[in-house]
Design a protein around this nucleic acid. Structure first.
Length: 583
RNA sequence: GCGCCCAUAGCUCAGCUGGAUAGAGCAUCCGCCUUCUAAGCGGACGGUCGAGGGUUCGAAUCCUUCUGGGCGCGCCA
């Protein structure tokens, strides 16, 4: 439970009460009122801007209004002091018992601590990865995969009903290129020396596909016309590539609920249906586009095309739906695909894609707005580039020279947990340096290690406790009954406050679709924990285990248990496995 | 030419949807192990939040104009 919300309610009702009593005007609008942790912890535990946002309506000076509200706020349970500060902030301080009670809540909830109901069962569709089935995943895909997967887990924790989806682009020209490339490998499997022309895929991951083709079809296609073999070889190769990609995803711990095929969508008439739907609403016409200014394509010539009125929905220009050969553009099938997702029941759609698709955002949002008549909301998260580094030096990659590093190679080198965590140490739209040396280092420079180490340290104490206090009941329910009032060191209280904020963080991260906030929170929590740990080196009384004081030991173990649970809870959202031991 | 993203300490980055004296880590300097993991902790130093203007009780955050980077701009996806 996000306790800041509880305070928000309390204060709103205080405002109502004061209105009823004639001390404030009627009909005060508290919508801009917030309750937050103050920026500086020395200001208190909860701060509200109530007086500043309401002063105009109340026709009072902010500080006067603050004083009026403060008298009432002081009567709320567990409030020990209320101060008015700065331009009219009301700072609220809470009793230690409040934090001790929160600690019990954590122990009772376990890793479900932080679960929220703000999603209210709403359906969200998160589409991510959607890499073309033309080769193994690279690191950039990996980032999109992790961002999407963590976002989906986060939304689920916040009470949304989430569908995790992968869109297979198996209908365009790129898969034809794949088929031609695979065909060459097929000939190669018969001993022919081949040369891969410019424009085809040179990667040797297609060699086994060629051999499989030989096994499956024998020499059937060796002297055939392309029109005869293309479709079958294409289907075969796409399957092989999707198997490869699914394996990459599995190794990364990413799982999708639904795989949607563009080809099927086209063949089932989905695209025609979507176009017809837009046509009925007068949103489609045939017209000629202006050539793009500045960089003009060489072979540009004006041509009448089937266009969607994207400009009526916030896009800059109208967008083409048909290619000159009469087949649909990628945009056309993507409209149909989003239409399909909407009709399957999601009114919140999220796409995670590479930043190089940035130019696509406006038109897709326009299309969703048009198709759903404004009912569906589309958010597009762009995953920026990942720079592979080693010890500060960029890792040089070239597809031609065969020094291209795949996602799988990176995972094998550093483990999937490291990849997942590091991918979330930046906002999705900021570039990310992924340094092999740094991310595998066991030091505080490495955030993955730092957080895992905190978790492992908790468990190290548990192991020690099991040795020294063999008959102590270490279950959550038993520890919750300890005398928690013994936990009153400032570091201990800070830890409890941080853990109490976890539900609020989950809600904020979920609402803003920003899973990277989890990583930062975990880092802060780990840091506070390491700090407490080290206090024990100078001050023996702050160590966790005390042979001569069972009550204190139990209380400290309760705190440790809670810390390890909250870290585990956060790592779970990131899809990272909490480690109990690091050496 | 147009559109989107970015600009915060010497470096790499946070900044909770407009709040109080802008925060971490690295680097530099000074401290802390007879200890449940020193693989760690504490302190010091470090800022005209790219520049100017605007909106209001209040701006790193919103609007606008510049400057400097990245991406994109019909028949690729």
């Amino acid at each position: 439970m996000n306790f800041f919300k509880a305070f928000h309610c309390e204060i709103s009702s205080i405002v109502e009460k004061l209105s009823a009593a004639g001390k404030l005007p009627d009909g005060m609008d508290p919508s801009r009122l917030t309750c937050e942790p103050p920026r500086d912890a020395s200001h208190g535990d909860v701060a509200t801007n109530a007086a500043m946002v309401l002063c105009k309506q109340a026709k009072m000076k902010p500080r006067d209004l603050a004083e009026l509200l403060a008298v009432e706020i002081a009567k709320i349970d567990h409030v020990t002091s209320v101060d008015v500060a700065g331009p009219g902030f009301i700072n609220i301080r809470l009793a230690q018992e409040f934090w001790h009670a929160k600690l019990c809540d954590v122990l009772a909830a376990g890793t479900d601590w932080g679960n929220s109901d703000i999603g209210n069962g709403q359906t969200v569709n998160v589409e991510y990865v959607s890499a073309n089935p033309t080769g193994p995943m690279h690191v950039g895909h990996g980032r999109g995969a992790v961002v999407g997967d963590a976002l989906a887990l986060l939304l689920a924790k916040a009470g949304y009903k989430v569908t995790k989806e992968y869109y297979i682009n198996d209908a365009g020209a790129q898969v034809d290129v794949l088929a031609r490339s695979a065909y060459l490998r097929y000939r190669e499997a018969f001993g022919e020396t081949i040369e891969i022309p410019e424009g085809l895929y040179p990667g040797d991951y297609l060699v086994p596909v060629g051999e499989k083709l030989k096994e499956t079809f024998g020499d059937k296609w060796l002297n055939a016309e392309e029109s005869d073999y293309l479709d079958e070889i294409k289907a075969f190769s796409i399957n092989a590539m999707m198997d490869l990609i699914r394996e990459d995803l599995a190794v990364l711990g990413v799982t999708h609920d639904v795989f949607s095929s563009e080809k099927e969508l086209v063949e089932n008439g989905g695209v025609d249906k979507a176009i017809a739907y837009l046509e009925e609403r007068g949103l489609i016409y045939t017209g000629v586009l202006e050539p793009p200014k500045g960089k003009k394509p060489e072979d540009w010539e004006p041509r009448p095309q089937l266009l969607f009125k994207a400009s009526e929905f916030g896009d800059d220009v109208d967008r083409p739906l048909k290619k000159s050969d009469g087949s649909g553009t990628y945009f056309a099938s993507d409209i149909a695909y989003h239409f399909d997702k909407f009709q399957r029941g999601s009114d919140q759609l999220i796409d995670v894609m590479g930043a190089d698709h940035g130019g696509y955002v406006k038109r897709m949002k326009a299309a969703v707005k048009a198709m759903s008549e404004g009912k569906a909301e589309l958010d597009i998260k762009l995953a920026q580039m990942v720079n592979l580094m080693d010890n500060g030096e960029p890792v040089k990659m070239s597809k031609r020279a065969g020094t291209f590093i795949t996602l799988r190679e990176v995972i094998n080198k550093v483990t999937k947990d490291v990849v997942r965590f590091i991918m979330l140490t930046r906002k999705n739209d900021a570039q990310l340096d992924f340094d092999f040396a740094k991310v595998t280092e066991q030091s505080k420079d490495n955030p993955v290690f730092y957080v895992q180490y905190a978790h492992a340290r908790c468990h190290s104490v548990f192991r020690k406790a099991d040795e020294e206090f063999a008959d102590l009941d270490r279950t959550e329910t038993a520890l919750a009954k300890a005398d928690l009032s013994l936990l009153n060191d400032e570091s201990e209280l800070t830890l409890m406050r941080l853990m109490a904020e976890w539900p609020r963080l989950i809600e904020a991260a979920a609402e803003s679709h920003e899973p990277h906030r989890i990583t930062y929170y975990l880092y802060d929590l780990a840091s506070e924990f390491h700090s407490l740990w080290n206090k024990g080196t100078g001050d023996v009384s702050l160590r966790f285990l005390h042979a001569d004081n069972l009550e204190l030991t139990k209380a400290r173990l309760a705190l440790l248990k809670a810390v390890s649970l909250v870290i585990a809870s956060g790592l779970l959202v990131l899809g990272v496995e909490p480690r109990e031991e690091l050496r």
